[in-house]
């Protein structure tokens, strides 16, 4: 039986994330997948603006930091110049679904051979809990004090459903990290997304529903319940597209 220890793809640095944040779990999953596929030496990560902005401190592989919302565009360039490298982007919901919506949609439509890890915690974490495109209907944030939807904000943006109509997309799956079962299936999805890129099959995106206890103003246990009860209802888990 295997021993469960820290992989060498993660550095020894302590993360700056708040207690109970899902980013740390997703970092570990990505690092384990890179380790298991043996691609650390040729992997280039693309960091967003948002909570995961310091990705280069935590990963023992090449990481490039991009302008807000532009990782799919930067990853496109890197992958086209160096097709033998494995290029992934790691983006939050403010980065991918707000300022970077057009980059995401066009990269997906072109079927770029990249892997996108999309962390959805339904709020802008780094800037202090403002409403994100993915904030749930009725959910409170510092910029939706009466709950989202009361003043014409519209319903949450569902990225997997949005991208599933595009022909260029190879693989779309929505997972979570709020239970051990979800963590294991999230790792499978991330591994498949990386394997698709190695096999040259095209654009793969894995959306991961994650906890943000600090900005939701909930305890760790209640944040886990919020993902399990509210977020999974608004954003149903599952495979949306699989053309691999």
């Amino acid at each position: 039986m295997p021993n469960l220890t820290r992989t060498e793809v993660l550095t020894d640095a302590q993360t700056h994330y708040c207690p109970g944040c899902g980013h740390g779990i997703i970092h570990r999953l990505v690092a384990e997948v890179i380790d298991e596929l043996g691609i650390r030496e040729k992997t280039i990560g693309t960091a967003p603006v948002g909570c995961a902005v310091l990705l280069y401190d935590y990963f023992n592989c090449d990481i490039i930091e991009c302008a807000h919302g532009r990782p799919p565009a930067v990853a496109t360039g890197m992958k086209r110049v160096q097709p033998d490298k494995i290029v992934f982007t790691y983006q939050g919901d403010g980065d991918l679904a707000a300022i970077g919506t057009s980059e995401t949609i066009h990269a997906a439509n072109r079927g770029e051979n990249i892997t996108v890890i999309f962390v959805n915690n339904a709020i802008y974490g780094m800037t202090g809990g403002q409403m994100a495109p993915t904030t749930l209907t009725g959910m409170f944030s510092t910029t939706s004090q009466d709950g989202r939807g009361e003043h014409g904000e519209g319903p949450p943006l569902k990225v997997c459903e949005l991208l599933s109509s595009l022909e260029g997309v190879c693989y779309l799956e929505r997972t979570a990290v709020s239970t051990p079962k979800d963590v294991i299936s999230a790792k499978r999805a991330i591994k498949k997304a990386f394997q698709n890129q190695i096999d040259g099959k095209g654009f793969s995106l894995v959306e991961v529903l994650s906890m943000c206890p600090t900005d939701w103003k909930l305890s760790t246990a209640k944040a886990v319940d919020f993902v399990n009860n509210e977020m999974k209802t608004a954003f149903p888990l599952g495979v949306y597209v699989d053309r691999s």
């Binding site: 021993n3 820290r6 993660l10 993360t15 109970g20 899902g22 740390g24 779990i25 570990r28 963590v183």
Partner: peptide
């Protein structure tokens, strides 16, 4: 699996 800080082995 659930530790966000990989502080457990």
């Amino acid at each position: 699996r659930m530790c966000p800080d990989v502080a457990i082995e």
